[in-house]
Structures are given as structure tokens and as C-alpha cells.
Amino acid sequence: MKTLRSLVRHEARLFASLALWLTRRTHGADGGRAFGYARGQGATTAGLVVVCVVETFGMAVLLREWPTAHRVVLALDIYTVVFVLGLHAATVVRPHVLTPDALRVRYGVHVDLRIPLTALSAVRRETRITHRHADGELDLAVSSQTSVTLELSAPVAHVPLFGLPREVSVVRLHADDAKAFVGALTRARTEPSPDPDPPG
């Protein structure tokens, strides 16, 4: 039952992301600075959509003598195209968000991880195209690539779509403008806290 609820929630968020994408809005970026990460996968998504559309026409020709099967397969093909577009839309409308006290690391509707700035011990640009699963590490590759590495002094809990929560102390992610992302994050970490209001 829990898995079914997770799937339903996942689908709803995908379709909501598609609506936000079509209206050129973002999700959860109010009050912070947004950093996109989806630009690198645009061509891949477009190619996949084209393949799905071609497959739809191909199946329509093959099943023209079986109208019931044709309608079923057509519905599945249309759903697949919408699903792929929803996945891409989710990565566009749900950017990484930097606020005065935390970094919100995201990857579509699958990952939404809040990292307090005080928990960051190191931030660096680091391009990686290979990633090996390791305990305590979270890799959020876009087109098989990450461009920024975050090291944490205190682990944070990551709750995956499926499976049990786990603690991570290293996060690798991608940012379209890694230089600006690292620069903004470095400044946010080093800026002094505002002085408290003087006593009245």
C-alpha cells in the first residue's frame, strides 16, 4: 500500500510539473536563488520523445487490422510520451535553491534534500562522468555527469522514492552553471550572520 501511494504521489507530481513547465513557472524557488541543472539532458529527452512518436506511428500501421489492440497500444504510447515529458519538466521546474541558511538539492520529483549551510565543510567544482555507489554518498548525475561535489561535516537524511532513508555525507550534483553555483554557495557560507537587533 505504501508503494502504491508513493507511485500515485510520484505521478501527480510529474503531471503538476508538466503544468508548471507549460506556464513557465517553478516550484519551491520563492525566497531563494535558483540554479538549473536540466539543460544537459534536453537533447536526450527530445531524442527519446521522437523515438516514442515514431514507435507510435509504427505500431498504428502494424495494428491497423486490430482496432481494439491499436487503441490500447495508442493509449500506452501517448502515456509514455507524456511521462517522458513530465520527467524532463520536473527537472526544469524544480531547480536547486540556495537560501540564506540552507541549500535545497533537487532532482526532479525524486530528490529534495535540504542541507544546512553550517553542515557544508567543502564545496568544489568537480566534473565526474563515472559514479560508483558507496555508502554515505549521493550522486545526482545529469546525462551521466556531475559537476559539483559537496562534502558535509554532519550527515543529512536522504529519503528515496522507494526504500529506506539513509544518511549521506557526500553529495555530487550537476548545475548548468557550476562556476556561478559554487561561487554563490561559497559566498553564502562565508558571509557573516547579521547582527542581532540592538536592545531597545
Rank of each mutant, 00 (worst) to 15 (best):
I129M: 13
T127M: 09
R125G: 15
E65Y: 01
V51H: 06
P67I: 09
S153I: 01
V49W: 03
A154H: 12
A122E: 14
V109A: 11
L87C: 15
H131I: 05
L74T: 15
H70Y: 08
C52S: 12
V72T: 09
L120M: 04
P67K: 01
E151A: 14
P116I: 10
D139F: 11
G47K: 11
I115Y: 11
V97Y: 00
R64S: 11
T127W: 03
L98S: 07
A75Y: 00
L76T: 01
L152G: 09
V93T: 00
L120P: 02
E55V: 01
A141M: 13
R132E: 12
G86V: 04
R125A: 13
L117M: 05
P67M: 01
L152N: 08
G86A: 01
V82G: 01
A90G: 06
V61W: 13
A119Q: 12
R106K: 04
T45S: 11
V54P: 04
A102E: 15
V82D: 08
R132S: 12
S153H: 06
R106S: 10
E126V: 08
T118H: 06
A43K: 09
R125T: 13
V73G: 03
A134D: 10
P155S: 06
P95H: 02
G42R: 15
A69Y: 02
V72Y: 08
D101Y: 00
Y79H: 11
L113Q: 06
V72S: 06
T99V: 06
V156K: 10
E151Q: 13
L113Y: 00
I129E: 13
V82L: 15
L48N: 10
P155E: 09
V97I: 03
A122L: 09
V84Y: 07
E151L: 13
C52F: 14
V111E: 10
F83L: 04
A69V: 03
S143Q: 13
V142A: 03
R106Q: 12
R128M: 12
T45I: 13
S121T: 15
G136E: 03
V142N: 01
L120T: 02
A122T: 08
H96S: 00
I78P: 04
A69H: 07
L63D: 05
D135K: 11
I129S: 15
F57A: 15
P95T: 02
A119K: 12
D101H: 13
D139C: 11
V50R: 02
R94K: 03
H88I: 03
V84F: 07
A154N: 06
T68V: 15
A89Y: 01
L63C: 04
G47N: 10
A134S: 11
I115R: 12
G42C: 04
H133D: 07
V81H: 07
R125V: 10
P95I: 02
